[in-house]
Amino acid sequence: MKFLFQHCNINVTDLDKSKAFYKEALGLHVVKEKQYDNFTLCYLSDEQNLFQLELTYLNDHPQHYDLGENESHLCFVCDDMEKAHAHHEKMGCICFENPAMGIYFIHDPDDYWIEIVPQK
């Protein structure tokens, strides 16, 4: 038996704002988008399309989501940490840094945290 990791889902309060953030911050692009009566699913991916981030927008949920203690996060590997850090700093989305580990976190419009780690 073999399993392949396909996607991870997060719920967002403003789909257009989230798509714009993920494009600018991480270079993700829309792979497909499906609209239903009460919600929209939007799948984002990087250049390799091996894994997708599914953004779910619920029509009747305008309030922010309770993310608890925000200990869950996504993680992206970057080939140029200096350039990425400068870009994210300019965007104003860096929310935590750990220089000793050589990593930092950014947060999206709904306050989901994304870890940025160097490519090894």
Score class of each variant (00 low, 15 high):
residue 24 E to Y: 03
residue 107 H to A: 14
residue 88 H to N: 03
residue 79 D to A: 07
residue 46 D to T: 14
residue 6 Q to I: 03
residue 114 I to R: 12
residue 108 D to R: 08
residue 3 F to I: 14
residue 104 Y to W: 06
residue 29 H to V: 14
residue 7 H to Y: 14
residue 64 H to K: 15
residue 61 H to W: 00
residue 103 I to P: 01
residue 67 L to T: 07
residue 10 I to F: 13
residue 42 C to E: 01
residue 51 F to T: 08
residue 50 L to S: 08
residue 2 K to H: 07
residue 61 H to I: 01
residue 113 W to C: 11
residue 92 G to K: 15
residue 40 T to P: 00
residue 107 H to I: 00
residue 113 W to Y: 10
residue 87 H to M: 03
residue 40 T to E: 07
residue 62 P to R: 11
residue 89 E to C: 11
residue 57 Y to K: 02
residue 91 M to T: 01
residue 105 F to P: 12
residue 3 F to Q: 10
residue 12 V to P: 00
residue 47 E to K: 13
residue 81 M to A: 03
residue 38 N to F: 13
residue 36 Y to S: 00
residue 76 F to K: 05
residue 82 E to F: 01
residue 39 F to A: 06
residue 96 F to L: 13
residue 21 F to R: 09
residue 84 A to K: 04
residue 102 G to I: 02
residue 83 K to Y: 01
residue 28 L to I: 01
residue 20 A to Q: 08
residue 19 K to M: 12
residue 112 Y to Q: 05
residue 114 I to N: 06
residue 21 F to V: 11
residue 1 M to C: 13
residue 15 L to K: 01
residue 32 K to T: 07
residue 108 D to Q: 02
residue 19 K to T: 09
residue 32 K to R: 14
residue 36 Y to K: 01
residue 111 D to P: 02
residue 5 F to E: 14
residue 94 I to W: 02
residue 86 A to E: 04
residue 15 L to I: 12
residue 78 C to A: 01
residue 97 E to W: 02
residue 114 I to M: 09
residue 29 H to C: 02
residue 61 H to S: 06
residue 119 Q to W: 13
residue 72 S to V: 10
residue 66 D to K: 14
residue 13 T to Y: 05
residue 89 E to Q: 15
residue 56 T to L: 09
residue 82 E to W: 00
residue 42 C to Y: 13
residue 48 Q to G: 03
residue 86 A to Y: 00
residue 71 E to F: 13
residue 50 L to R: 11
residue 8 C to Y: 11
residue 98 N to L: 03
residue 27 G to A: 10
residue 119 Q to K: 14
residue 75 C to G: 10
residue 78 C to H: 06
residue 41 L to Q: 04
residue 17 K to N: 15
residue 67 L to D: 11
residue 26 L to I: 10
residue 95 C to K: 07
residue 20 A to G: 03
residue 66 D to H: 11
residue 29 H to E: 09
residue 104 Y to C: 08
